[in-house]
Design a protein around this nucleic acid. Structure first.
Length: 274
DNA sequence: AAGAGACCCTGGATGC
DNA sequence: TGCATCCAGGGTCTCT
């Protein structure tokens, strides 16, 4: 499932292939992929456009276009981006394709049809309500403490709330909570200042490492050249149920928090001390 | 306002 | 072997 490190890795590979290439035609293979405007208008307005630069906010990809509009895309669960020769047959799960001037085709493939494209005048229409980037200077323990104040929901659920911090999904939430040695069901507002500091630092560290290792490939995530990431080899708790905690050897537990599978060390991540 | 749960989807895994 | 059911989860929506 693409989270911040996967989205950034994909964008880094995609950028040199799509920037400055006029889009000569747009093929919508499944109309539901276009969230706004309507499919016909999307097709008409994208034709002839050129990507000037790319960007990212949380898990959203931003493609800044030459008419000052912005193509915003979200991969959700199973979205993939590839750039292939235009003559290559479509895959069953291809949903959207942009024909580029150099004869290549930029394709969006998405088995489960959760991914979306938005063509907007201002990207803030889509990403305006997101919290800070985890690697931003303003994402600190103090900031986190302010956001968590009074909140009774599980810290795991709050880490997944994109309005608090943008880009974290199920994998990195579990990994960060393990690194900070916090139980995923701790109430957000119960975290002490030092625990907030530790959690903010853990989030930054896990995101930095996952970026360096080009993301986590468990199933569907692929870089645009088809190769997998490497962070799956660095996972300490995620999807390691029953395997020994890398720190103390206790078998990793799996529970459901906020409807999401959650993995943690039951000995080192406890709800209350003593 | 905040929190909990449903919903959207497909296909792989599991169970009978 | 074949069929039904469960499960994965990001974001949005509804309900309380």
């Amino acid at each position: 499932m693409p989270e911040l490190p996967e989205v950034q890795t994909i964008l880094d590979a995609l950028e040199p292939l799509v920037v400055d290439q006029p889009i000569s035609s747009v093929t919508i293979l499944w109309p539901g992929v276009v969230e706004r405007p309507g499919a016909d208008e999307f097709q008409a307005r994208m034709r002839g456009r050129r990507v000037l630069s790319t960007g990212r906010r949380g898990k959203y990809m931003l493609f800044n276009l030459d008419d000052a509009s912005c193509l915003v895309m979200h991969l959700r669960m199973t979205g993939e981006m590839r750039v292939v020769p235009a003559a290559e047959p479509y895959h069953k799960h291809d949903r959207l394709a942009f024909r580029l001037a150099d004869g290549q085709e930029w394709r969006f493939k998405d088995q489960r049809k959760f991914g979306r494209a938005y063509l907007v005048e201002d990207s803030a229409e889509i990403v305006g309500k997101l919290g800070p980037e985890p690697l931003a200077e303003r994402f600190t323990g103090d900031f986190l403490r302010g956001q968590l104040s009074g909140r009774t929901a599980a810290i795991k659920s709050l880490l997944l709330d994109q309005r608090i911090v943008a880009g974290i999904g199920n994998i990195y939430a579990d990994e960060a909570l393990f690194r900070a040695r916090l139980h995923p069901q701790r109430q957000g507002g119960s975290l002490t200042p030092s625990e907030c500091d530790a959690l903010a630092a853990a989030v930054k560290a896990v995101i930095r490492q996952a970026l360096a290792e080009l993301g986590t490939t468990l199933r569907d995530y692929r870089r645009p050249d088809g190769s997998p990431g490497e962070f799956q080899n660095s996972l300490q708790v995620f999807q390691r149920t029953g395997e020994p905690c890398p720190s103390c050897g206790t078998p990793i537990s799996r529970i459901v928090v906020g409807g999401r599978s959650t993995h943690f060390c039951p000995k080192e991540q406890v709800i209350s001390r003593r």
